[in-house]
Design a protein around this nucleic acid. Sequence first.
DNA 1: ATTATAATACTTGTATACAAGTATTCTTGT
DNA 2: ACAAGAATACTTGTATACAAGTATTATAAT
Lengths: 245, 245
Amino acid sequence: MIDSKEFLYPEKSLSKASAGERVACELRMRIISGTIESGSILSENKLAADFAVSRSPIRESLKILAAENLIRLERMGAIVIGLTEKEIQEIYDVRLLIETFVFERIIKMDTVQLSRELSKILEMMKVAIKYRDADEFALQDVLFHETIIRSINHAHMLMIWNNLKPVMECLILLSMRLRIKEEFEDFTRVIRNHEIYIEAIESKNRDLMLESLHLNFDDVQVQGTVDDLWISQQMLAKGAVQKND
Amino acid sequence: MIDSKEFLYPEKSLSKASAGERVACELRMRIISGTIESGSILSENKLAADFAVSRSPIRESLKILAAENLIRLERMGAIVIGLTEKEIQEIYDVRLLIETFVFERIIKMDTVQLSRELSKILEMMKVAIKYRDADEFALQDVLFHETIIRSINHAHMLMIWNNLKPVMECLILLSMRLRIKEEFEDFTRVIRNHEIYIEAIESKNRDLMLESLHLNFDDVQVQGTVDDLWISQQMLAKGAVQKND
DNA sequence: ATTATAATACTTGTATACAAGTATTCTTGT
DNA sequence: ACAAGAATACTTGTATACAAGTATTATAAT
């Protein structure tokens, strides 16, 4: 039985969230980290008891997770799907699709404002590293990419991002918690990649942006190591530790 | 006050649906057709009274519509956003993105099975025309495109499609109802375009597929007329009539 | 022992009740 | 007449109750 007092998801992020969203975030972390195994069956009543809330917010959270394809709602119980290697590859496909589309729009825009915002976020990320705050770093990283996507003012691309975001956030949180302990030097490379991204936006250099993206991606596929947002499944479980504040 | 006995959404499609999904489908039709105006504020209690159900399914439906960006859930009431011209253009962007991605995968596959399925659906569409069943035609049209997307077995592309699908379905339903009365000859062109699509898949001819897509798209933008899935906002209201069975 | 049937312990979906918070309206004091 | 504050009528989020359906288990008959 899982002690419901040990939460994987950083509580500071859900100050204004409802019980349902809170439960969804926590379940998501447990599913993606493997704390809850694929194939498990979740019962509304049991979850309600575990989280000490009623079935209403539990139902809400299950709907959210089903929309993210992390569970499958069936007649009797919700079946945990989880993230396979294939799923992670798919998320990568979608991100590549979104970000290349977004970049095509960005190069037709005035990017001064955007560049400033991104630089600010990058500074925040550096501070987070300085104070060894993996969670803060991860959340800023997500914000970095969200800021880029938001900049083109495209409601539907934003919708796709909003679908992807929670899972992405989980992946990054778990990844960064792991790496801040074991592979700390990676952070400087992550920062460098973000700097290149900003440069690509400022110079509206399509090739530079693609190069930056593909560098990350090749990293994942060829070496099995990860950069930025991408991490392989077997590493995730190791990142499932208490948040550090 | 809207007479809740007059439903825009074809009831046959929601035989197994819950009350919440039913309400969501109906509200979606009313919002997209303009029966419910943009800017309106929807109250859970009022909707519950109108649809003669409790607030539980109403809440479910509002969550669904909010995920589709048709309404915005705020502290006091849900604000109707609806579909602007810009939104419809955005949906078009997303579809172009998805379908080109999917096609790249398809040309690396064995397409015999897929081609057979699509041909079957096309036959069904022809029958629907023969019997002047706009709703059936529209639903088969949606199925046609869903079948293509499903064929590549990509869970995340399917997720994006699942987000898009309900709105698309509404647009097509409204469009087809209108055209089966006023622009009947359009249907032969729609059928022809689908045939070209199948040919492109069979011959794995990227250019033919792109040509087919772009023909439709240019149609929308240049002439203001629509083909296949695409229709301009001002026409939608006219499609908001009773289903015809 | 095996199969058929009945009882039970689940499940989901919906209705209703309640608490806490927010906008609006009404009252009251100046 | 107008501003300030209290009362009221909303709102959402959550808890709980109940109905209908499904799987499992136990019982009984062959």
